[in-house]
């Protein structure tokens, strides 16, 4: 009978698929973490922007670069922060896209795994009958 070899093959198939699935899940988790980090950064930047907006024109603004504080123009700082916010937002959007993509992949993988499991089960049941 060919069923033992077929069964073995199916099981190997299942294993690889399950591995893929877990890899995908790991990716998604990592993505979520990055996303969280960016969200926090975005919040911080927005806070900074708010405070910078509240500052008067002649206020002294410094930026910490490495170990030194470098004096910066308020307008310059403002522009920098704005740019940064833009960048982070774009990044967040990109991450959203990838997460969605990954989740789709995950779902299809899940389906595949389920199908293989069912086939194995039916094969085993057939064997038990025979």
């Amino acid at each position: 009978m060919a069923s033992p070899s077929a069964l073995r093959e199916l099981q190997r198939d299942l294993e690889t698929k399950a591995n893929d699935l877990s890899k995908l899940q790991k990716d998604i988790a990592k993505n979520h973490q990055v996303r969280k980090k960016y969200t926090i950064q975005l919040g911080e930047n927005e806070l900074v922007l708010k405070e910078l907006d509240l500052l008067k024109e002649d206020a002294n603004v410094y930026k910490l670069i490495g170990p030194v504080l470098v004096k910066q123009d308020l307008a310059e700082a403002n522009a920098n922060v704005r740019k940064r916010i833009e960048y982070i937002s774009a990044e967040l959007k990109r991450l959203d896209g990838t997460v969605q993509d990954l989740e789709e992949k995950q779902n299809s993988k899940k389906d595949a795994v389920l199908k293989v499991q069912q086939r194995i089960q039916s094969l085993q049941a057939g064997k038990a009958k025979v």
Partner: peptide
């Protein structure tokens, strides 16, 4: 006061 606004930005206040 030199206030840290976040993201490495400080302001004299």
């Amino acid at each position: 006061f030199l206030v840290l606004l976040g993201e490495g930005y400080y302001a004299e206040r």
